[in-house]
Simulated scan of single mutants.
Amino acid sequence: MANIKSAKKRIKVIAKKTARNRMVKSQLKTAIRRFEDALNSKSFDDAKAKLRFIEKKLHQAAAKGVIHKSKASRSVSRLATKLNKAL
């Protein structure tokens, strides 16, 4: 356990940031799962709307440093390819 005041503060800050990162990543995974469910159920209009939402959220997460910007772009690209193949 840390004894120095600044180290104690860093522990609290890191815990907050870790919780936020987990929350954002969980939301992304849920959104991606819902997109794939819409794709599997052949509701393409719904899937397109969900893809736009996912793209926005992925780039927001990348801007905040939750994920790398290349990962965000790669994920959007792969999901768009899945959608285009299904159409």
Rank of each mutant, 00 (worst) to 15 (best):
V24R: 09
E55T: 14
K16S: 13
K69R: 15
V66H: 01
I54K: 03
A2S: 05
D37C: 01
K8A: 11
K85E: 10
L39W: 08
V76L: 13
S70Q: 15
A47M: 03
K82V: 05
V13A: 11
G65D: 13
K29F: 07
A19L: 06
A19Q: 13
I11M: 15
K82D: 10
I32F: 04
K69I: 00
K29N: 10
L87Q: 08
R33H: 02
Q60E: 12
A62S: 02
A47L: 11
T18M: 15
L83H: 02
N3S: 01
T81V: 15
K64I: 05
A63N: 12
A2M: 11
A19M: 09
D37I: 12
L87V: 11
D46H: 00
A49I: 00
R10E: 06
K17G: 11
M1D: 01
K57Q: 04
K48Q: 09
K42Q: 14
L39C: 07
D45Y: 13
I32P: 15
I14L: 15
N3F: 01
A72V: 05
A38S: 14
N3V: 11
K57N: 02
A31P: 03
A86L: 12
S26L: 01
A38G: 07
I32S: 03
L58F: 11
G65N: 08
K85M: 05
S77K: 05
L87H: 13
L51Y: 06
V66T: 10
R20K: 09
S70H: 14
K69D: 08
K71R: 11
L79D: 02
V66Q: 05
M23F: 10
K25C: 01
E36G: 10
R74D: 10
F35A: 09
T81M: 14
S73I: 11
V76N: 08
A47F: 14
R33E: 03
F53G: 07
L39G: 10
A49L: 05
S73C: 10
A61T: 10
A31R: 00
F44Q: 05
A38Y: 03
R78K: 04
K12V: 09
A47W: 10
N84P: 03
E55H: 14
I32G: 06
A2W: 09
K16L: 04
I32L: 01
I11A: 14
K50E: 09
S26E: 00
A15R: 15
L51F: 01
K48N: 09
S41F: 12
R20F: 13
M1G: 04
S75A: 07
S26A: 07
A61R: 13
S41Q: 11
Q60Y: 01
K5H: 08
E36I: 06
S43A: 14
L51E: 08
F53Q: 10
A15L: 04
A47I: 05
R20Y: 08
M23I: 04
N84D: 06
M1Q: 03
S41N: 13
K25S: 00
R20N: 09
A2G: 08
L87D: 02
Q27N: 09
S26H: 02
N40F: 06
K56C: 12
R78M: 00
L83Q: 06
K50T: 04
L51G: 06
S75L: 12
G65K: 06
D37W: 07
